[in-house]
Design a protein around this nucleic acid. Structure first.
Lengths: 352, 352
DNA sequence: TTGAAAGCGCTAACAA
DNA sequence: TTGTTAGCGCTTTCAA
């Protein structure tokens, strides 16, 4: 009632009010009082007072003293992407259930920014760092290492810390195979009718491209050299790649392997303003899953990475004592066209 | 070289090494040294030492002392959604450019969780809080208010703090009109052929529903009572609404107003496993923009909320001195089917 | 131009 | 069963 914009209550205030010492108040308030053998009644008094005065722990002070903050970091390449944002969602659930506070930040796929971001988080004494899709995981590792911060790579592997990654080779193999099998025997796909767009020189792309080549060769008997159009992780660069291709060949390939949903957006940009019929015969495989992407006007086979399993494994790894760095593969799932799957949000309670 | 997992350097270490006092070191390191009239040479020495010993400020200590942390909070309903994750992306850019550290967390559209989350962030002495789409903005306000924390509502308005919201009425009016106009004069839409799915009893939904009714009446001359199927912000509840509708009428309406991309996912779930032809005549308006949603096999007119403008306005408001709470409307944009627009990520530098 | 000293709010020995 | 005390690393008067 009286507490307008008054200063927040501290353990000293409660100490005075309760007639106990600050350390007793502290123990009661942070839950260590049972093992400090503090009388039940003393505890209750203090708890009551805390309640009435709306006491909340100053977590910066606690953090300073304990030299850890209760914050757990997740560093993403970007927020604005279903794959990464579902990581964030899943991550949050895990952190919350451990009574800690999730902090999600992005670092724009820039090695410099990645290191700076890690450094900043370390300055806040975060307890653990989950590094997703880092351009330079080992650079970030150095920073964490020298601060004694536990960390783990997700999605893109590093050489110096544990990594949990999608089985990109197997995923791309399944996807390539599915694309090829999508064409019947009466009108089979020719090797020069299947192109891969997107990706750059990172581990994931290399694996996917390798599997793409191998599978093409195995199933179609050949694999023309120019079957891969690298275009980074950028819709516009991918768009340009499609434009160039189209200009050169006068048409799109019959079948596309698209490296990620980001590159897939490049295809959308290419489609915009062009007649829908131009794409009516197209078959697409996309390494990433997006429910809307699954219902485009042509068959889109997608690969869903197992975010829940990856995050769970990452938490398991970060908790265990340090062992030599290892990579753990999580098998992704092939998703047939026109599938609307549940996501992390479906586990939240629905309120109408 | 020598610094293995050694403890981090502090201003005291540098103080000893440089022969200056801790306060001098502090001033040099936090940039206030010019106005403290510290000799250039002293500063350089200290800066050099800091560099060599990889000094980084302990932000918890600074935060404790200054009683603010340099952290700026963004509280979202959920991460896993393009609208909200593009908010996060845009927000990050703003915060970074101010030299602060963004902290993005979600609160699951649960009033209790919203308040707890705000409280936690306050315990870390965050400097400002941006509250997006809160179920109970005024509840969160109480918490912020009594901690003297500057805050602003986004997307869903509160009565007690400034709010920046999408002009839901105007957006829904445009959308409803566009849906109706999409049907030519030779086969015009009848009032009982246009239904709204999704939404619940929040400000945004009420506005949208009001505009939907008014526009229907204005353009179609009538508006049957049962034209609105509330189904919250949940794909599965929306799915069930479609199933119920379908069972009762033996078909879908010719035209749909879908309240959000989340409800749109409910429509996708309804589509899954049903023949594509069933939807070939459908016309949909969706309040939210998603590039993949824009290319579904039937016309989808979308409304894109102006995230950049909303965030920018929110920052402007939170900085200015406190004035009586006010709501600011940001006009959204109607997006024609088959549009692939740029997002916040397009401004990041592309690397191939 | 610089230093001494107090203290932000909390925790954790150690004493009592 | 509880209190005293010494910091965690930094900022900020105030004094020199």
């Amino acid at each position: 009632m009286d507490q307008r914009v008054k200063k927040k209550a501290t353990i000293y205030d409660l100490s005075v009010l309760s007639g106990s010492s600050p350390s007793t108040v502290s123990a009661v308030l942070n839950g260590t009082w049972r093992k400090r053998r503090i009388k039940e009644s003393t505890a209750q008094t203090i708890l009551g007072l805390a309640e009435r005065h709306q006491y909340t722990t100053n977590l910066q002070a606690r953090g300073l003293r304990r030299s850890r903050s209760g914050l757990v970091g997740l560093m993403l390449p970007v927020h604005d992407n279903r794959y990464f944002s579902s990581m964030a969602q899943t991550f949050e659930g895990h952190v919350r259930s451990r009574g800690q506070c999730p902090v999600v930040v992005s670092a724009s796929r820039d090695p410099e920014e990645e290191r700076r971001t890690a450094e900043t988080l370390i300055s806040y004494s975060i307890d653990q760092l989950f590094i997703v899709g880092a351009t330079d995981p080992d650079g970030v590792h150095e920073v964490c290492e020298s601060a004694g911060l536990k960390h783990v790579n997700i999605d893109l592997p590093g050489a110096k810390a544990h990594s949990v990654i999608s089985d990109n080779y197997e995923g791309a193999r399944m996807l390539t195979e599915a694309i090829i099998h999508h064409f019947g025997n009466d009108d089979p796909l020719r090797p020069d009718e299947l192109y891969l767009f997107g990706g750059r020189n990172d581990h994931a792309s290399r694996e996917r491209i390798a599997a793409f080549h191998a599978t093409k060769k195995a199933l179609l008997g050949a694999d023309p050299e120019d079957g891969v159009q690298s275009s980074g992780y950028s819709p516009d660069i991918t768009l340009r790649a499609f434009e160039v291709f189209y200009q050169r060949h006068g048409k799109l390939p019959r079948a596309l392997f698209i490296n990620s949903s980001i590159n897939m957006e490049g295809l959308l940009r290419f489609m915009a303003g062009r007649p829908a019929e131009m794409f009516s015969e197209l078959v697409v495989g996309c390494y990433d899953y997006d429910p809307f992407g699954s219902f485009l006007p042509f068959p889109v086979i997608m690969v869903r990475q197992n975010v829940e399993a990856m995050i769970a494994k990452a938490f398991a790894l970060i908790d265990e004592p340090t062992t030599p760095p290892q990579s753990f593969l999580i098998t992704p799932e092939l998703i047939q066209p026109r599938s609307a799957l549940k996501g992390p949000l479906d586990t939240l309670k629905d309120m109408a």
